[in-house]
């Protein structure tokens, strides 16, 4: 277990979105949160990354309590979040954007250089469009930059908020290939996905959420095979289609 949420209650001021949420993320897993719109999936990520503070409950990373940690503290502990949209710095170049991902490493120039080389190897767009202003990229291209940037700190746990959103099939494949690669390199991944087909297809574990609580947790295979759940939350035919290719 790398991350655990216990009885977390959290919201934006207009009522609690998470209403006593318990969630466990296994070390080395790709855990995918699915569920209907408004169930509080993205809120889970915001609570973990420290952007939102839980009102009640406890969030623990390995042996450290991070319930009330601030975003930069969470980051330095090895959790990095890629937001749902608009994470880039539009007036900076693509290169500067990716370098900003290494902000916590700013005192170690050598490491920064090495990581940048690694990341641009993984995401060719970084090399190709390095000197361009990031604001001139399309929504999907921006997303690629955000991914590249998040890897600069070599995190333990990567939080991905709907990585499929706005991506074309080709980039989508590249992104999920990279999700798998990161996972193989020892990184735990917690993602929120609406595209259940792809999300559960790539995941090892799955969490089904409803109304701010966890309705079901298991391996992605178990969730896909669960007849009632598949029918109710995932749409009838998804289970069939999402069989790993």
């Amino acid at each position: 277990m790398i991350l655990a949420l216990e009885e977390v209650v959290c919201g934006y001021g207009g009522g609690d979105v998470l209403q006593g949420l318990d969630l466990v993320v296994e070390r080395g897993s790709i855990t995918c949160i699915v569920g209907p719109n408004g169930a509080g999936k993205s809120t889970v990520l915001r609570a973990v990354s420290g952007i939102l503070r839980p009102r009640l409950g406890r969030i623990q990373l390995e042996d450290t309590d991070i319930t009330h940690a601030r975003p930069h503290e969470v980051l330095s502990l090895g959790i990095v979040q890629v937001p749902q949209s608009n994470g880039i710095f539009p007036q900076m170049t693509v290169r500067e954007n990716v370098l900003m991902g290494g902000y916590p490493l700013r005192r170690d120039r050598e490491l920064l250089k090495r990581r940048y080389a690694e990341v641009s190897e993984l995401f060719p767009i970084v090399r190709e469009r390095g000197p361009e202003r990031a604001g001139n990229l399309s929504g999907g291209q921006r997303r690629m930059i955000e991914f590249a940037r998040s890897l600069m700190v070599n995190p333990k746990l990567v939080l991905l908020d709907e990585p499929s959103l706005g991506l074309d099939p080709k980039s989508l494949k590249a992104v999920f290939d990279n999700v798998a690669l990161m996972n193989e390199a020892g990184k735990t991944i917690l993602l929120v996905e609406q595209n259940v087909r792809i999300g559960l297809g790539a995941a090892t574990h799955a969490v089904v959420m409803e109304s701010g609580r966890v309705r079901l947790y298991g391996t992605s295979r178990e969730i896909l095979d669960h007849p009632e759940i598949a029918e109710l939350y995932l749409g009838g035919h998804v289970a069939r289609d999402a069989a790993p290719a």
């Binding site: 952007i51 979040q81 608009n86 994470g87 880039i88 900003m100």
Partner: peptide, 9 residues
């Protein structure tokens, strides 16, 4: 992008 910067630490 304040939120983006926050996520960068």
């Amino acid at each position: 992008n304040p939120q983006g910067a926050m996520l960068m630490g």
